[in-house]
């Protein structure tokens, strides 16, 4: 779904929650007249269950789009092995192959991107601009953060992940 220039995606989880509660409200209103009298506020609340994730996704996508040019400007291309705890907060660019891709259905994808020197987890807190799959060669722009914000090994908080090719032989 496109709102303005922003491609908004709702996670399957948000849709599932909306569907489950809609079914529950329908069943309850069929069997209980008391529930029917509350439909006047239950229906808007149900719609909020889908509107809020859409709005949040729209806002995060807008914010990421605003950040990308700044990250493009500041990022330093580094090899994965050179990323370490002293670089927390630094904006980096890495290129590598996607080894794993998880939680894409939650709009919070986590990738493992490897170059010839090593692999590093890449977390994103919104959906990427394009569909990224395992074995895609990608360029990642992001900030080095700790895995659990205040502790843990360095990972990349991704602002942009773009396909630049496909691993040969796939």
């Amino acid at each position: 779904m496109k709102i303005g220039n922003v491609d908004v995606k709702v996670s399957i989880l948000a849709i599932a929650v909306f569907v489950i509660f809609t079914i529950l409200v329908i069943i309850a209103s069929i069997y209980s007249p008391a529930v029917r009298s509350h439909l006047i506020w239950l229906v808007p609340v149900l719609f909020m269950l889908i509107i809020l994730p859409v709005a949040l996704n729209y806002m995060s996508q807008r914010q990421y789009a605003d950040l990308r040019p700044e990250y493009e400007r500041q990022a330093k291309t580094v090899r994965v092995r050179l990323i370490n705890e002293s670089m927390i907060g630094k904006i980096v660019r890495i290129e590598g192959v996607v080894e794993h891709a998880r939680f894409q259905f939650l709009n919070r994808p986590q990738y493992s991107v490897a170059d010839r020197t090593g692999a590093i987890p890449v977390k994103m807190f919104t959906n990427p601009e394009e569909d990224i799959k395992v074995n895609d060669i990608v360029e990642v722009l992001g900030q080095v953060i700790r895995r659990y914000i205040v502790t843990g090994d360095p990972i990349i908080n991704c602002v942009s992940i773009r396909k630049t090719g496909k691993k040969p032989g796939n």
Partner: peptide
């Protein structure tokens, strides 16, 4: 070494 590790290339 320290500056390099900090990404201050």
């Amino acid at each position: 070494f320290i500056r390099f590790s900090e990404g201050e290339y």
